[in-house]
Amino acid sequence: MMKRLVQDERPLVAIMVDGDSISARAGDPLATALALAGRLRLRASPTGAPRGAFCHMGVCQECVLHVDGALRQACLTPVRAGMAVELRGVP
């Protein structure tokens, strides 16, 4: 059995994703919080193909979504309590 080497003491906060509340660690990248919540499809391409986080460093723009009404990259946006996230055209 593996032991945790470091205990993460950052608080769990609630964020809204398309009207659903999910828990995430404050300060984690939003893309990480969404993936841990099972939300891998973040938007749809113009052809309707599902898109998600790809590079995780802000280069590819694949994870752009609406956060509190503004377009943001999920991989670069830190989670904070009460943020409202809208996935863009996800099938």
Results as ranks from 00 to 15, higher is better:
M2D: 14
M2A: 15
M2K: 13
M2T: 14
K3R: 14
K3S: 14
R4T: 12
V6E: 13
Q7M: 10
Q7I: 13
Q7T: 12
Q7Y: 13
D8Q: 04
D8W: 07
E9D: 11
E9H: 10
E9S: 11
R10C: 06
R10A: 08
P11S: 05
P11N: 08
L12H: 11
L12Y: 13
L12R: 09
V13N: 09
V13G: 07
A14S: 11
A14M: 02
I15A: 02
M16P: 00
M16I: 09
V17A: 01
V17S: 03
D18P: 08
G19Q: 03
D20G: 00
S21A: 13
I22G: 06
I22K: 07
S23M: 12
S23K: 10
S23W: 09
A24H: 05
A26N: 05
A26M: 11
G27V: 00
G27N: 04
D28M: 07
D28N: 13
P29K: 01
L30D: 06
L30C: 07
A31L: 07
T32M: 13
A33C: 02
A33Q: 06
A33T: 04
L34D: 09
L34K: 08
A35C: 09
L36R: 15
L36G: 10
L36S: 10
L36A: 13
L36N: 14
A37W: 05
A37S: 14
G38L: 02
R39Q: 10
L40K: 14
R41H: 12
L42H: 00
L42D: 05
L42P: 06
R43C: 05
R43T: 01
R43F: 02
A44Q: 08
S45P: 00
S45L: 00
P46L: 01
P46Y: 03
P46G: 02
T47M: 10
G48Q: 08
A49L: 12
A49C: 03
A49F: 12
P50V: 02
P50C: 03
P50R: 02
A53R: 07
F54M: 09
C55D: 06
H56K: 03
H56I: 00
H56A: 11
G58T: 04
G58Y: 09
V59P: 00
C60G: 11
Q61F: 15
E62S: 15
C63Q: 07
H66K: 12
H66L: 14
V67Y: 08
D68R: 09
D68Q: 11
D68E: 08
A70S: 13
A70R: 15
L71G: 02
R72V: 06
Q73P: 11
Q73C: 06
C75H: 03
C75Y: 04
L76Q: 14
L76M: 15
L76P: 01
L76D: 05
T77H: 09
R80K: 14
R80M: 02
R80W: 02
G82M: 02
G82D: 01
G82T: 00
A84R: 15
V85C: 04
V85I: 15
L87Y: 08
L87T: 10
L87R: 12
R88T: 09
R88S: 06
G89D: 07
V90D: 01
P91T: 00
P91K: 02
